[in-house]
């Protein structure tokens, strides 16, 4: 399978930017999507197969346990027959034990085969799941790039159509500066006003306390007039 990301990069380098010029053609996208679907079906089948094998192995394990019990049971019978010096019976039981042991070995082999199959299948499923996830991520990247390309094309079109409403970067900069200057002026004026108001109220307090006098009062004027008349 070709590396989609590599295709993307080649397409970008090659300048496949015009609207409608798909980065990866729709046909190969469809094939890719089909391949992902097939892989998913394959994994689903493998998982079903795994379940069946696990079930079979469980049945074999059960049988093995049963055999183990049977063998030890028959062994104890054989020992009891020997205790009673019944050689013939002991031999008969031993024969049965031997047969059970052969069956036991066969089943053990079977269980081992299932065990190996399970490990193998689990590994394959894990690998396939990883590959599918990778491919889905790649597909998402391609699709995202496609839609982003469409989106940016639309935006660029509307930007170029309304170029006058956006203006140049230099014009934007000037507008930003003007606004900031205006805000600064407003702020400075506010500070100035605040300061004046504070000064005023301090003056008022000082006057009330008699620390400073009103600079220009009627008494001052009268005094000045008197001074000019009697000089």
């Amino acid at each position: 399978m070709t590396n989609i990301v590599e295709k993307l990069l080649t397409a970008i380098r090659g300048g496949a930017r015009e609207l409608g010029e798909a980065v990866v053609d729709t046909q190969s996208m469809r094939i890719f999507e089909q391949e992902i679907r097939d892989s998913k079906n394959g994994v689903a089948e493998a998982k079903e197969g795994l379940t069946e094998i696990v079930a079979r192995k469980m049945a074999v394990d059960r049988k093995l346990n049963q055999l183990k019990e049977d063998i030890s049971e028959n062994e104890s019978y054989a020992l009891k027959a020997l205790e009673k010096k019944d050689e013939a019976l002991a031999l008969e039981i031993a024969d049965k034990v031997a047969k059970l042991e052969i069956e036991n070995n066969e089943l053990k082999q079977e269980a081992l085969t299932y065990e190996q199959q399970i490990t193998l299948l689990k590994g394959e499923i894990k690998r396939a799941d990883k590959t599918i996830a990778e491919h889905e991520r790649e597909l998402l990247m391609v699709k995202t790039r496609e839609s982003v390309q469409q989106a940016t094309q639309s935006v660029t079109q509307s930007v170029t159509m309304n170029q006058s409403s956006i203006g140049t970067a230099r014009e934007s900069l000037e507008r930003i500066k003007q606004k900031q200057q205006k805000e600064q002026d407003k702020f400075d004026a506010g500070v100035q006003l605040q300061k004046e108001m504070q000064d005023d109220s301090l003056d008022e307090k000082l006057k009330t306390a008699g620390i400073i006098k009103e600079k220009h009062t009627a008494a001052d004027v009268l005094q000045r007039l008197k001074n000019s008349t009697y000089q």
Binding site: K143, T144, S147, S154, V155, V159, I176
Partner: peptide, 20 residues
């Protein structure tokens, strides 16, 4: 001063501003 252009695609909301 700088408008934002928003588009919605199948996977994301894309917000773009054109600088220069």
């Amino acid at each position: 001063e700088i408008p934002i252009f928003v588009t919605v695609t199948s996977t994301q909301i894309l917000c773009i501003s054109y600088l220069f």
